[in-house]
């Protein structure tokens, strides 16, 4: 399966870069030394051990803006959030998003340099592309690379928070998330014990928006199931094919839907930021095949919000939505 292959390679290049990075960091901090007499510390990043400021003041954040914003940080520059991420942002996050200088879809090094950052954080897989020149980043300011994927997001998110000095916000979100997950687990203990769930999704990329061609069945620990697992939901199929460890799920055609979901007690379909069904999934709900599924007329098909970025705040709002949806199940009352 090609979807979401493992992203953590490059240990060897990282080791090579380590030496370069150390030398360059020294150069970088030399240039800055006059302006601030701040302390630095060693930070373990994907690109090696980097000397970064203990309390960075001017951070340029390259990668998913929404992830940075979720930490409550205020980057001086970043590729601004746009399009599909905007409706998910809080008013405050939108303000910070607007206030940051846009470093562009293609990283504009001169813009980054003119912002005089004391720390650059890069967290996206595309840094292997020609546009990403680590040497150049390091010559502007200490630069740390931190990548995330479905499997390692919790630990990598923590490292990200650590690097940008927002561990307090991170801990608060993490605690809130864990409490909420435990609450759900507790409150619906009986129901969760006796019920199996199947999580369906559709991506506009994998399927046409208006078309009901294929549906995505999410395996446990995938985009919209990782938080559900923490809340104690039994997600089917419970033993997905293990040959591809990183598999996030599989495509189903509409024809196969009725057979595939037959074993599940409850079906979960995705909701968007405004609480209504995700536009990509709406045609499925309208289809005759969906309506003919036994779970649907019984009220055992529930919509749960699915925000896929790897942050605790996203997972918290997903959990809240799940809690509401579980309450509507016939068994809950």
């Amino acid at each position: 399966m090609i979807t979401a292959p493992p992203r953590r390679r490059g240990a060897a290049p990282a080791a090579v870069l380590l030496g370069v990075a150390l030398v360059l960091t020294a150069c970088g901090s030399d240039a800055d030394a006059g302006t601030r007499a701040d302390e630095t510390r060693s930070f373990e990043a994907d690109n090696g051990t980097i000397e970064i400021p203990v309390d960075p003041q001017r951070i340029v954040a390259i990668g998913s803006a929404a992830t940075y914003l979720s930490l409550g940080m205020e980057p001086v520059g970043m590729p601004r959030a746009s399009g599909s991420e905007l409706p998910w942002l809080s008013a405050e996050e939108k303000q910070i998003n607007e206030a940051a200088v846009d470093t562009g879809e293609e990283v504009d090094y001169e813009t980054v340099a003119s912002l005089e950052p004391d720390l650059i954080v890069v967290h996206e897989p595309s840094h292997i592309l020609p546009g990403y020149n680590e040497e150049r980043f390091q010559s502007i300011a200490p630069t740390v690379y931190i990548e995330q994927d479905t499997a390692n997001w919790k630990s990598q998110y923590e490292r990200l928070a650590d690097a940008v000095g927002e561990l307090d916000n991170f801990e608060a979100d993490k605690t809130e998330y864990e409490t909420l997950a435990a609450d759900v687990k507790d409150e619906y203990a009986d129901l969760l014990d006796s019920t199996t769930f199947m999580v369906l999704n559709r991506w506009s990329g994998g399927t046409n928006p208006g078309e009901t061609g294929t549906i995505f069945l999410e395996y446990p620990d995938s985009f919209c199931t990782n938080y559900a697992g923490d809340a104690g939901l039994k997600i089917l199929p419970d033993s997905p094919p293990t040959s591809e460890e990183e598999d996030t799920g599989k495509d189903l055609s509409m024809e196969q839907l009725s057979d595939t979901v037959a074993d599940a007690d409850v079906l979960i379909y995705p909701l968007g930021p405004d609480g209504s069904v995700k536009p990509e999934f709406a045609p499925v709900l309208d289809s005759n095949i969906w309506k003919s599924l036994p779970q649907v007329p019984d009220g055992r098909a529930i919509g749960v919000q699915c925000r896929t970025i790897y942050t605790y705040s996203a997972k918290i709002s997903n959990l809240e939505s799940l809690e509401e949806a579980l309450a509507t199940l016939p068994e809950a009352g």
Binding site: M1, T3, P125, S126, I128, P130, N133, R136, G205
Partner: peptide, 26 residues
């Protein structure tokens, strides 16, 4: 088809490479 099967991040990266860029040329 490969682009269809990729995650959005990777597909975007691939598309960015496919467009041809001189950014970061050394």
């Amino acid at each position: 088809w490969l682009i269809l099967k990729a995650d959005l991040d990777q597909a975007m990266s691939a598309a960015a490479w496919g467009a041809g860029s001189l950014n970061g040329v050394a």
